[in-house]
Computed example of a mutant assay.
Amino acid sequence: MIVVATADFEVYHDVVNELRDRGTTFTTVEPDEALPDGATVVVTGADHADTFTDVTTIVADPDDPRRAVDQALAAVRGDGGRTVIGVDPGRKPGIAVLAGETVVAAFHVPLGDAVDVIQREAAEAPSPVVRIGDGSRLESAKLVNELDSVTVELVDETGTTPYLGTGTRGMGDVLAAVNIARLEGEVVDAREIEPTEGEIQVIKDRSRERSERNRAIDEVLARRVAAGELTVDEALAEHRGDGAGSATEPTNSDDSDES
């Protein structure tokens, strides 16, 4: 059982609300009271960090109550509460954080923000693993190559995207990430991908869509985007000649002429 025991009102209020939102069974006591029978985890504030010695103690940060609740739930589940982060790669990856079989957090963020989110969620977890789907080859390679501080597994994501009924638009990537998290993959340190002509063309088309002048970047810049060296916006800046990188390469007329 989880027990909340703190004199810090902010910690008490935010942790209790977070536990209620999760539908978690818990109880509360004053910090100087005896813990109830069955107590296995205590969530408290920094002022009582050393008060409870016979149970697992989680010291909550008043600015991040969710983290304390995640840790408490993982502790209650014991060895089955390992943190696994599933990622369905793409331009806007779905990210699911599991403690054992329970989904404790989910995100749907732009690719440029995904590494920060994953590293933050893995930061305080014991032996976390990140499982990334092998689809969306360029995006998955970028994530694998940038996540160098955590164990990464590449997962065959075949069949992980569920059927979505009416009213579930936008949930597919996150639900796929949950399924990916539950599949064991191959541990990888890096993923080298040679982009196909079709993938290069997709990047060019995407740059044209984002360009104020309806102009696409050239193939050299598109390959740097594919390799994760530049974002599309950074490549467009170099293409205009106002970026911090090297001078713009000559463009093919069919990709650079204004329409």
Rank of each mutant, 00 (worst) to 15 (best):
E33S: 08
V11Y: 13
A39W: 05
S246D: 06
E258T: 14
V152F: 05
D14C: 12
E219N: 11
I217Q: 01
H239K: 07
A122W: 00
I203L: 14
G228Q: 03
A39N: 06
S136V: 05
A181I: 02
R182L: 06
I203G: 11
L230N: 00
R224A: 04
V29K: 08
M1T: 14
P195L: 08
S140T: 04
E186K: 04
G245V: 08
H48G: 04
R224Q: 05
A244F: 09
A125K: 05
R20N: 10
F107D: 00
G23F: 01
T44W: 12
T196L: 07
G243Q: 02
R208Y: 05
L35G: 02
M171I: 10
P62R: 09
D257R: 12
G80L: 09
A176I: 15
V42G: 09
A96E: 12
E184I: 01
D134I: 01
L175I: 06
G172R: 14
P31D: 03
D64L: 11
V76G: 11
P250I: 04
H239E: 10
R213M: 12
G245K: 00
R210S: 12
A106T: 08
V4H: 06
R20M: 05
V155C: 01
M171C: 13
G228D: 00
T40I: 13
E30S: 12
D8Q: 15
P195Q: 04
L143S: 10
P128F: 02
I180M: 01
A7N: 14
A122G: 07
P195F: 03
F52M: 07
K92H: 13
A60V: 07
L175P: 05
D79R: 09
D54W: 00
R210C: 11
T57C: 09
D88C: 14
A222K: 02
E258Q: 09
D255I: 15
D32R: 14
E10S: 09
G167F: 04
G172P: 01
E121N: 01
E139S: 15
V59P: 07
S253R: 10
E258H: 12
L143V: 10
A60W: 07
A74F: 15
T57R: 10
T44Q: 07
T231S: 08
V150Q: 06
T83Q: 14
I118V: 05
T28Q: 00
D61M: 02
E121G: 08
P162M: 12
D70K: 15
G23R: 04
V84T: 08
V97K: 00
I118N: 04
D21I: 08
E121D: 03
V29G: 04
V41C: 13
V97L: 03
T196G: 13
V41R: 14
F9I: 10
V174G: 09
F26K: 00
V16E: 14
V152A: 03
E249V: 07
E121V: 03
A181T: 06
E18N: 13
S256C: 09
R91P: 14
T56G: 15
V104Y: 00
F52Y: 03
G243W: 01
N179I: 05
I58R: 10
D8W: 06
G133P: 02
P89S: 06
E234I: 00
